[in-house]
Structures are given as C-alpha cells and as structure tokens.
Amino acid sequence: MDTIFLIGGSAGSLKVLLEVLPELSANLTFPIIIILHRKGYVDSQLVNLLNAKTSLNVIEPDDKEPLSPGNIYLAPPDYHLLLEQDKTISLDFSEKFNFSRPSIDITFSSAVKIFKENTFALILSGANADGVEGLKAVKANNGTTLAQNPITAEVNYMPLQAITQSKIDFVLNPSEIAAFINKLNVS
C-alpha cells in the first residue's frame, strides 16, 4: 500500500461524492481520505449516507486507526486529520486553520510527507481557499494534483483557487473522477 488518494471539498462537494462513490471499484488497492467541511450536527448521518453509496467501507476513524487498502476514511468533524510514518491516523484538536477543522491543507501536507510522490490530491467544489497550500505541498513532493472542473462545481471558488494558485495536473468533470481513481489500482 504505497498510494493514497485524498479528496478535499466544501460547499457543493457532497453531490459530487454521491456521484463518484458508486462508480468506485470494489477492490481498490489503496485507501482514500475525504476531508469535508461540514457543520457539526448531521455527522453520523453523513458516514451512513456515503456508506450506502459504495461497497467500499466508509469509516469515520478513531485516533490511531491504521489505514487499510480499499477503505474510505472520512475526517471526523472538529478534528484535523494527520498521518504518521507507520500509516496510522492521528487526530488533532488544535486551532482551526483557514477557519476550518478539519482543514484540507493540514491533511494534504501531512499525507504527502508520508506518501511522497504517490500522493494524489483532489479539490472539489467549495467557497473557501482551504486546500491551496496543501496542493502546493503535494506538488513540491512530486505528487499528483487534481481539481474538479470549476464549470461543473456548484460553488467554483475552491477549485478556481486551486487551479490559479497552484499547479494542477488534471482538471476533471465529476463523471471522470471514479474512472481516474479506478485506473490507479495496481493488479
């Protein structure tokens, strides 16, 4: 398990995830981490909602949870999600970053330290610039950066910031995302 696929999103990105998840291959050989900005209360529903859309296991991880291939980890509300060298998850309740906790920047830049050039980071729809610094860190470590095509985004600010402020390798329509992820599978 050398690869990690990171997805960061804010307003308008749930819709995209609901389209992507059902199309994902049932036996992915790497984990996916999703960092969504969300308001505190509807949490447990969100993990259930995503689980219902895929045969992969969607987990809201506890601290020290080890990453496993084929699992989708949803950052818990109100914690930053970091990765350790031994590929376990560390949660952190420190200050908000970009007015956000979880912050996409923090997870992206933490993950790329561990997974280096095998890091894939995708920014979806949103009204916040969170993610830009993280994408820069991914790029600086020769990882791969992706953004949702802003034309298809419900709120285009976040993918536009990503595209204009950092170097993006692939701009994808929602319908192309699952196929891109499935192709990364190693047989």
Partner: peptide, 12 residues
C-alpha cells in the same frame, strides 16, 4: 508525543 502533531505545534 505523536510526531505529526507535535511538529505542527513546534512549527506554530
């Protein structure tokens, strides 16, 4: 202390 986190704190 957990490495990822303390590095952030010290940086901060």
């Amino acid at each position: 202390y957990s490495k990822a986190s303390i590095k952030r704190r010290v940086n901060r």
